[in-house]
Simulated scan of single mutants.
Amino acid sequence: MRTEPALMRERLFPRCRQTVRSAREFTAETLDAWDRTARLDDVLLCVSELATNALRHGVPPGRGYRVRLLAYEDGGVRVEVHDSGPGLSRIRLGGGRGLAIVAAVADRWGAVPRSPGKAVWCETDR
Rank of each mutant, 00 (worst) to 15 (best):
P14D: 14
P14C: 11
R15Q: 15
R17M: 09
Q18I: 06
Q18D: 14
T19C: 12
T19Y: 01
V20R: 06
R21H: 05
A23R: 09
R24I: 15
R24H: 06
E25S: 04
E25Q: 09
E25D: 08
E25G: 00
E25H: 02
F26P: 10
T27S: 14
A28L: 06
A28V: 02
E29S: 11
T30L: 10
T30P: 08
T30D: 07
T30I: 10
L31K: 09
D32Y: 02
D32N: 12
D32W: 05
A33S: 15
A33Y: 04
W34Q: 13
D35V: 12
D35C: 11
D35H: 14
D35M: 09
R36D: 10
R36K: 13
R36T: 11
R36V: 11
A38S: 14
A38D: 14
A38L: 14
R39I: 06
L40S: 10
D41E: 15
D41F: 09
D41H: 12
D42N: 01
D42H: 03
D42A: 13
V43R: 00
V43F: 02
V43L: 09
C46T: 12
C46F: 08
C46S: 13
C46Y: 05
V47P: 06
S48M: 09
L50H: 07
A51G: 12
T52Y: 02
T52S: 12
T52V: 01
N53Q: 10
A54I: 08
A54G: 05
A54W: 09
A54Q: 05
L55C: 04
L55A: 05
R56F: 03
R56D: 13
H57G: 03
H57K: 01
H57D: 02
G58H: 05
G58L: 07
G58N: 03
V59H: 02
V59I: 08
V59D: 02
P60I: 01
P61W: 01
G62K: 00
G62E: 05
G62F: 03
G62R: 02
G64K: 01
G64A: 04
Y65L: 15
R66F: 07
R66G: 07
R66Q: 15
V67A: 06
R68D: 12
L69D: 11
L70Y: 03
L70W: 01
A71F: 07
A71W: 08
A71S: 15
A71N: 03
Y72Q: 04
Y72P: 03
Y72G: 02
E73L: 14
E73K: 07
D74N: 13
D74K: 01
D74P: 02
D74R: 00
G75N: 07
G76V: 00
V77N: 04
V77P: 09
V77L: 10
R78G: 06
R78H: 00
R78Y: 08
R78N: 06
R78D: 07
V79Q: 04
E80V: 12
E80S: 14
H82W: 13
H82P: 01
H82M: 11
D83W: 06
D83E: 07
D83H: 03
S84T: 11
S84L: 05
G85H: 04
G87K: 04
G87I: 00
L88I: 12
L88E: 15
S89Y: 10
S89F: 14
S89P: 11
S89E: 13
S89N: 13
S89R: 07
S89W: 11
R90W: 04
R90Y: 07
I91C: 04
I91E: 13
R92C: 02
R92M: 04
L93N: 00
L93P: 00
G94H: 02
G95M: 00
